[in-house]
């Protein structure tokens, strides 16, 4: 099916969903494997723009098709940011696609991921109703937390139209250190008093990239103490942009997000991967068969963002409740099943 619907408003999005029995929303296509399904495609490119942004509230609301870059620029202008380091900004990734894919970046380590910053969503359910869940204020406990559920749900339970996010003031300075010891010092650094902002190991590297954020004067003093404990040096060139844009992944090669825990990072040994957020997730590129086997053995799972590998790798549990929730939000199976 090559049909592409191009709504330009929430109302048209509702029409688009209702117009056809099987649909999937797509953003900029930066994680194409997620929408590689038999379905009419709804391009979200026409639903873009920041609807509300009040820096004093630490919140913004934007249409799902808004490119991350547009959001990052608007926030930066007011000295704010999304602390989880959204990925693929230069590649044009959209806010909605990022939520549906559930992809956070290195900054996830300090203040939490995408799920911790999404406050509210407006979405179209399988029956074609435009619904709002969550709220627009930084603190809210009313109703079920569907906004979090949509993180990583791959557009299989509804089409996101608009989202409200919490933001933080951007720290005045950031300093990246390269530390010897790599994965060996993961838990020591993570538990230390320094409150690192990110702890990553880049593909093919054994050293750790440790980012510190805060007032400039403090960072200088802190880094001296850090080097006394773990030898290393200050990184002058920016290593984060290349990681953010997956420039290390060969064109056409698969790209898989794996949720891992610090105790299980040996599962990924020898694989081409970017280990991120203190060993809590990794982006892996390479042959999927072997990775799948390793993940199964370790009780881990992954999702393929790019390439021809199966959508889900490793262990998969599909409890009866998953089907029941799918039925609740999408009784006519308007959206593809999660396993598709």
């Amino acid at each position: 099916m090559n049909t592409v619907l191009t709504p330009t408003s929430a109302e048209e999005l509702v029409e688009a969903v209702r117009s056809t029995p099987r649909v999937i929303a797509v953003g900029a296509g930066t994680k194409p494997r997620l929408s590689q399904v038999e379905a009419v495609r709804i391009s979200m490119a026409g639903l873009r723009g920041i609807k509300e942004y009040d820096p004093s509230e630490f919140t913004f609301t934007a249409a799902a098709g808004t490119p991350l870059g547009e959001i990052a620029d608007a926030l930066a202008e007011r000295g704010q940011y999304l602390p989880f380091d959204p990925m693929l900004v230069d590649a044009g990734a959209t806010l909605g696609g990022t939520v549906a894919a559930g992809v956070s970046g290195p900054g996830r380590f300090r203040y939490g991921g995408l799920r911790d910053f999404v406050l509210g969503v407006r979405f179209v359910d399988g029956t074609g109703r435009l619904l709002r869940m969550g709220g627009k204020v930084v603190k809210n406990a009313a109703g079920f937390d569907l906004p979090k559920f949509f993180v990583g749900s791959l557009g299989r339970f509804g089409v996101l139209a608009e989202m409200t996010f919490k933001v933080f003031p951007r720290p005045p300075t950031a300093l990246t250190l390269r530390l010897r010891g790599g994965s060996q010092i993961l838990s020591e650094t993570a538990n230390s008093r320094f409150e690192f902002d990110a702890l990553d190991i880049a593909p093919g590297e054994t050293d750790m990239l440790a980012r510190l954020c805060g007032p400039e004067a403090a960072l200088k003093t802190l880094s001296r103490e850090i080097f006394a404990r773990w030898p290393g040096e200050i990184v002058s060139e920016d290593p984060w942009t290349a990681l953010r844009e997956f420039r290390w992944v060969n064109p056409g090669a698969s790209l898989i997000k794996v949720a891992v825990s610090p105790a299980k990072i040996a599962t990924l040994e020898g694989l081409r991967c970017h280990l991120s957020a203190g060993g809590n997730f990794a982006f892996v590129s390479g042959e999927a068969g072997e990775l799948d086997e390793r993940l199964c053995k370790a009780g881990l799972s992954g999702v393929t963002l790019r390439g021809e590998a199966p959508l889900w790798l490793g262990v998969r549990s599909r409890p009866a409740i998953a089907q029941a929730v799918k039925q609740a939000l999408d009784p006519v199976n308007r959206f593809p099943p999660l396993d598709d």
Binding site: G102, R108, G113, F149, V260, N280, V303, W312
Partner: peptide, 9 residues
């Protein structure tokens, strides 16, 4: 144990 998930939250 992971701070991240794969699939819906």
């Amino acid at each position: 144990p992971s701070r991240e998930t794969v699939g819906p939250d």
